[in-house]
Every structure is written in C-alpha cells, then in structure tokens.
Amino acid sequence: MDMDDTSEQQQVAFAMHTFERIHHTEFQRRFLSQNTRHDGRAFSQFRATHVTKGTVSTAQGSSTVRIGNTTVVCGIKAEVSEPDVKTPNEGYLVTNVELSPMCSARFRPGAPSDEAQVASEHIHRLFGKAVDLATLCIESGQAVWSLSADIVCLKYDGNILDTAILALVAALEDLRLPEAQLDSATGVVSADRTIARQLTLRKRLFPATFALVDTYLVADADDAEEQLATTSVLVVLDDSGRLANIWKRGACPVSNETIHQCIESAVERAETISKTL
C-alpha cells in the first residue's frame, strides 16, 4: 500500500508532457473520468471545422478542410477516357487519400500505408452513389469524363475520414466541368472552359466519427485519443437525414445504445456542418 502511495505521488510529480508520453492511457483516463477531454472539449463536441472551396486553381474542383489540426486538401482533375464496356454511359470517379510522411511521422515514405489504402477504398465506395455517373457521359460508349479526386493530408491529428469526406463533398460542389464534344472522325474530345457546368450531387454526405477510448464514447478523436481507441464508429448521413453509411471498426463489441447515441450525435453534427458547407 505504502509503495503504491509513493508511486502515485511520483507519477503526479511528472511534468504533464512527460506523463503523457509515458502513461498514454492513464493520462487520457485522468481527463475522461472527470467528464472532459485533454483539450477541454466535451465528449460529444467536435473540433472547429473550416471548409474553403476553390483553393487550387490548377484543379477543376478543389477544397481545403480543417477539423482542429487535421488539414486536408482535395483536388479533382477531370480527364477524358473510354467508358467501361459494361457501363457505356457512366464516367468514373476515382478517389484516393494520400497520407504522406509530411503530415505525421506515423507514415513512411513510399507505398500507401494500410490506413491510406483503407481510407481510399472506403471513401471510393461511399461516393460511388453520391455522384450520378451518367452525368459524366460525353458520348455513350466512346468518351466519358474521368474524375480523379486526390485527397492530400497536410497535417494529421486524427479523424482523417471525416475531414476527407467533407473535403470531397466540398470539392465536388466546387467542380466545374467544361462542355465537351467528341469529334467522331478524329476521336479527339474538345472542351470549352468558358461554358462550364456544375455537377449535381445526388446527395451531400455529412460524416461523424466516434471513438471508444477505454469505455468512454468521444466524438472526433484527435491523434492522441485515436491511438488509444479500441473501436471507432463512422456514421454518414445524407442531406435528407437518412443513413448513408455506418462503419464500425475495431475489435471491441459495441452495444446498441452506443450506436444509437452515435447516430443521434451524427444528426446534430450534420445540421451544424450543412451550414458550413
């Protein structure tokens, strides 16, 4: 008992940053058990979110999104290609998330990390229904638009999925596709940038990620909390309030109540973001 007491006192005597480095979980628990978080937020509070559209002039559509310290730039380049034989009227929307060593020491240079691959794949599937690919058709069976959306992370502080999804929605809304015509004799597609149309999204998506740190459900976990989270739940709602996607990751089981809680918080979050977007 005595030894425990002295070790407790020794722990408290550490400088806060040192304590955080050595006892990550205990550090977070100290805050969570007091019903707050290490950066002062409430459990269901999201970090300050800023969305700016049209930030990259070399891309046909672009946006920069910041949630807390996590910063992401999304750029969409439109190119022309032949459609897939099975879907002659549909264009392509290809999304990729890039997590480079620049945003965090967690990522190594070279091939995309597991986290990047997972994020790319999930977002690609999520947006498969968000854009009506038939609107990308130039000439059925011969030429379609191929939109390459690249989401580059500049600073990583947790919750890349929310940031990336918001960035892609904003970039798609910012996208201006020039009017294109196919010259069937030469096979060349010409386009006039002065006549550009906006892309109509079938639905806008509003994401909200929740993490289970210890036994506490927190919204929008930052990097420190994310590393300790056992499970995370991503809830994506569309603008009509319906559930577009729900994704639970992690080894720990979650109760029904927790999922309901997440969905309710996600509805509130969707209302807040729809004003920002």
Binding site: S81, E82, Y92, S120, S146, D192, R193
Partner: peptide, 27 residues
Amino acid sequence: MSANIFDRRRVNGPPRSVEPLYTDEGD
C-alpha cells in the same frame, strides 16, 4: 491516350485517360 499505371495499393481509374483539347483561349 496515355496509360495510367495500375497500382494495386490505390483505387484505380480507367487504364487510359487524356486531357481534352481545350478550344477556349485559356489563360
């Protein structure tokens, strides 16, 4: 058409794509 390299670690688009010929004055 220029070929896009297939990368199994990324989401891939069509195998070939090219910029359209812009007919406007541009910049």
